[in-house]
Simulated assay, not measured.
Amino acid sequence: MSDIQVRFATHKDAPAVAALHVSACRAAYAGQVPDTHWEATPMAKRVSYWKEAIEYGEPQVIVALAGQEIVGFVGFDRSRDPKSKNTTGEIWAIYAAPERIGQGVGLALWDAAREGLEDEGCTDVTVWLPLLHEKTLRFHDLAGFKREMNTARTVPLGGVKVEEVRLKRKLA
């Protein structure tokens, strides 16, 4: 049984979400994106972004807790992809603290996001993932997502180019 609880984020969670976002990205992109990229944006600006997202629900943000500690978060909403149906949702971001990977955080967040998207009337969900993140791709494969190879794109990140692919699955 997992010790992970989930709830919608509040304003007071923004600093913890911003810090976790940076630490999780540093770990996920280690060896691909220079550390200087994560240091380029001041933490105050990152906290401001997450406060605004939480306040306006764009994206909706759910945090995962182990006790009182935020150990992961997911941001989800309608798809931002042009030409997507209005019933298509998107996982904008899903991260677990690096030391908590493999401990049920991602599953708890995915379950909460799926329920939230279904409540919003979505019938499908997509997520963009870097091709080199094998653990992340495997997690989404196990969650029923299928790769849409014709959607591959290159995204500049920290002075390097990151190859991404969109994955999709039905919600019901």
Rank of each mutant, 00 (worst) to 15 (best):
A96W: 01
I94K: 01
M149N: 14
G106T: 05
V105C: 13
G89R: 06
L109S: 10
T123V: 10
G159K: 07
G106H: 05
T151Y: 12
E120W: 08
L117C: 05
G89T: 11
E163M: 02
R114A: 02
T88G: 08
K161A: 12
A143Q: 14
E99V: 03
Y95H: 07
Q103E: 04
R138L: 08
D141G: 04
P130F: 05
E163A: 07
F139G: 09
W92I: 02
E120C: 15
P130D: 02
E118C: 09
K135T: 02
A112H: 04
A112E: 04
Q103H: 08
P130T: 04
E115H: 11
V125F: 09
A97L: 00
G158Y: 09
T87F: 14
R169M: 10
L157N: 08
R100V: 01
P156S: 10
V155H: 07
F145D: 05
E164N: 09
I101K: 09
A143S: 06
D124L: 14
T151Q: 02
G121K: 11
V155W: 14
T88S: 14
P156C: 09
V127R: 11
L167A: 02
V127L: 06
R100A: 08
N150Y: 12
N150M: 08
T123M: 10
V105N: 09
D111T: 10
G106I: 04
L129S: 06
L129H: 00
L167K: 04
T136V: 11
E148S: 09
W92F: 06
D141T: 13
T126M: 02
L107I: 07
A112I: 03
D111M: 08
E120Q: 15
E90Q: 15
E120R: 14
L131I: 01
I101V: 14
W128P: 06
L157A: 10
L167P: 00
S84N: 12
L167S: 00
V165E: 01
R166M: 14
R147D: 00
E134A: 07
N86C: 13
F139W: 11
V165R: 13
L137T: 00
V160R: 06
L131N: 11
T87R: 08
K168V: 14
M149G: 15
L157T: 02
H133G: 03
H140M: 01
E99K: 07
G144Q: 06
L129E: 03
Q103V: 00
G144M: 04
P98Q: 00
D124W: 11
F139L: 13
H133D: 01
P156I: 01
G102H: 01
K170M: 13
A152K: 14
K161N: 13
K146W: 09
E134S: 11
L117D: 12
Y95F: 04
D119H: 03
G121A: 14
L132M: 05
L117Y: 11
T136E: 07
T123C: 07
T87C: 07
Q103R: 03
L137E: 04
G144V: 12
H140L: 01
V155C: 10
K146N: 09
N150V: 05
N86H: 12
